[in-house]
Design a protein around this nucleic acid. Structure first.
Lengths: 254, 254
DNA sequence: ACAAAAGTGTTCTATGTACACCCATGT
DNA sequence: ACATGGGTGTACATAGAACACTTTTGT
């Protein structure tokens, strides 16, 4: 793809040279990221950033930022912004969906390519960015009005989020809930995926699915899906000093 | 979202008024569409358009075109372009993926939001657009070199396609193959989904999965998945004059 | 009679779900 | 002793794949 111009006719090179990239009015493009984590209470959390400037000043939003046109792919934009706003590096990102209504940003037409990241809480260290006042984790909760987010001190209704980020997050949760059944997503949320017990993994599944699961059945499907395929290995070691029967430890090989 | 400015402070209105939308260099954005059909031979086909201008002049590409910034959503771009290039209207489109490498188009950085459409062949009527010389259906085939496309007269290797369209199409086929198991996609490919036999439906599944299926098992899962849920209804009529035993006719209600 | 599709039945295995039960540990 | 998680086994319903077999049409 990079050396397309090497095999070009003179005529085509001339065309490319004289092509006006601004013949069409262009939209802005951003990459936004829905970052999921598990907190100390084993609840599914999302990372939100308080906007420091207009529009939606002081509203909470998911991290993201503008594409550096011509310099990086949107995948790279997502990686860069995630690092700039949260310090996270080398995190696998999954593309979720692209949102492109003309009025989703009051400034101008913005196309947002949205990604999902799954990270252990320990890797998070927040840094205030240039238009980010504050970054915090919020527990994902449901009540009569549907989705909302809580922090211990504050509760944020989905309607209080900036832009169309409530829709984005709802879609991300749905996708995560579906993916968890056939993709090894849950392992990325473990505190330490090189040494974990089945119970710890079950807590993640329960939090994402928002319902309790049967221990025996969970074990069986764990064995079938991950252990036999080699994605997870038995460490042949037992957990210690947890005030209960020592549990077998496993390691994620993905 | 539309009346965001009504609830704004004076300060914010001023900000929005004086905001320079061009503070960042912007990429171009297109919506491209992978159109699938079944042909007379019950083979899965894709719609390709021969490019009339540079770049990739005379190469085959999937239909698509630039977003009209500020005037339409990307979903609308996809619908509009599909209509302009193929005459198809009111076709449900499914967003597939967004491609955004900076060098996928030699002219400039282009972000392409790609959609998939499933249409019966009868609805297709080609019209030459402004940069579309020719539109044709190609059978999707596989050989030692992988994916290729054939037309009866010409055979096109995936490497002959314009831009990164080979990757796009490969992804679209994979997704279609997965979706067919749990989404009612196949019904959109029937010649007449208000009156079809189980056999006709089976041919579509076989073509997409690229392998033959067991009749008895296919019937059973058809009953379970679609008939009992009411997505498909038994017309209580039999097909006639087909040179074989008359078959029960069904109607898709989706 | 024959080809081709229409349609029924059985068997085996894998999976999902429900549930009863025992084991080991620290407090 | 007991709460908490660790771990095993049984039972039932359903889904998927393999396969054998009958029926109805036009040619």
């Amino acid at each position: 793809m990079k050396d397309y111009k090497k095999n070009c006719s003179k005529e085509e090179l001339e065309f490319l040279e004289s092509y006006d990239p601004d013949r069409y009015k262009k939209p802005s493009v951003t990459a936004d990221i829905v970052v999921f984590t598990m907190d100390e209470d084993d609840e599914l959390c999302i990372l939100l950033i308080k906007r420091g400037g207009f529009p939606y000043k002081d509203h909470w939003a998911i991290p993201g930022g503008f594409l550096e046109t011509g310099k990086e792919s949107i995948d790279d934009t997502a990686r860069r912004e995630l690092f700039e706003e949260t310090g996270l590096k080398d995190i696998p990102l999954t593309q979720l969906y692209t949102f492109g209504d003309p009025d989703r940003d009051p400034r101008m037409h913005v196309i947002s390519v949205v990604y999902t990241a799954l990270v252990p809480k320990s890797t998070l260290c927040f840094e205030a960015g240039d238009d980010a006042k504050d970054a915090k984790l919020f527990k994902i909760r449901y009540d009569i009005d549907g989705l909302n987010f809580t922090n211990g001190s504050e509760v944020i209704s989905k309607d209080d989020l900036a832009f169309d980020h409530a829709n984005i997050i709802e879609l991300a949760i749905k996708r995560l809930r579906n993916r968890i059944d056939y993709e090894p997503d849950a392992f990325s949320l473990l505190k330490d995926n090189s040494s974990f017990t089945i119970y710890e993994l079950k807590l993640i599944y329960e939090s994402i699915k928002n319902r309790s699961l049967d221990t025996a059945n969970f074990r069986k499907s764990f064995m079938r899906n991950w252990l036999t395929s080699g994605i997870v290995k038995d460490k042949c070691k037992k957990s210690e000093g947890a005030g209960r029967k020592p549990a077998e430890l496993y390691e994620f090989m993905g």
